[in-house]
């Protein structure tokens, strides 16, 4: 059974659909890139999958025993976080909160998991640092570690590379690809970067307030849509 299935689904705010006619299904271990121009409904779809907003039409089903609390999420950064005094460890540990119920403190096993994840993402030397003093790429890796603390099944990333320099961008794509290959975590990423998306993802979903394309990355390249975007006319 598929991990996520949309049947003619629509999402929006205050009665106005932002994105509609979604029909796709995603299997465990897939790596989906959601493409589209600004305002195409990419972030709205992510909020829908996270169940922060309800479908206005159609259905969104989850399979393979996926619970809402088992989704890891890497949101777009907010302005408030830029001057927030938080230690790297504190931020990473907060990923465990959804599993802890009312237990007030973190367990040794959780701290060990977090340490392993920070090691894998190459940020263990930063664990005593202040989050707001890190570079953009380092901050994203800290938030990625937090998201991975929250999930072992599905990772949602909302424009994780925006604002990063080319080196940090490639590094983050490599890390996300590695996570997908080695652990089999399903990945849904919103991105503007068509070239990297086609290179790393297994599937592409192209939105323009409705579904324009859904299929494998290989098929996407062959379509007119894919060619237009890869041709450099859009925001590549």
């Amino acid at each position: 059974m598929a991990l996520i299935t949309c049947h003619d689904t629509a999402f929006g705010y205050e009665g106005h659909p932002v994105v509609s006619h979604l029909n796709f299904s995603l299997n465990t271990g897939d790596y989906l890139c959601v493409m589209g121009e600004n305002g195409a409904g990419k972030s709205t779809l992510i909020k829908g999958i996270l169940r922060l907003i309800k479908p206005m039409a159609g259905t969104l089903e989850t399979g393979d025993g996926l619970l809402p609390s088992e989704i890891g999420y890497l949101p777009q950064q907010t302005a408030a976080q830029k001057d927030f005094p938080a230690g790297v460890e504190e931020v990473v540990y907060s990923g465990f909160l959804n599993r802890r119920g009312l237990r007030p403190f973190y367990s040794r096993a959780e701290k060990q998991t977090a340490a392993t994840l920070m090691e894998q993402l190459g940020i263990s030397h930063l664990k005593k640092s202040c989050y707001r003093e890190l570079s953009g790429g380092q901050q994203q890796r800290v938030l990625l570690a937090r998201a991975l603390c929250a999930t072992s099944k599905l990772l949602l990333l909302d424009e994780p590379v925006s604002g990063l320099d080319p080196v940090a961008t490639q590094e983050l794509y490599r890390l996300i690809g590695d996570i997908n290959h080695t652990t089999g975590i399903t990945i849904i990423m919103v991105s503007h970067d068509v070239r990297s998306a086609v290179e790393h993802a297994s599937h592409i979903l192209h939105l323009k307030n409705a579904q324009q394309f859904y299929g494998t990355a290989h098929d996407y390249v062959a379509t007119n849509l894919g060619q237009t975007f890869l041709g450099g006319h859009a925001d590549v």
Partner: peptide, 12 residues
Amino acid sequence: TFDETFARATGV
């Protein structure tokens, strides 16, 4: 406090 969106998304 740090990230309300993330907290909500993970079920807090």
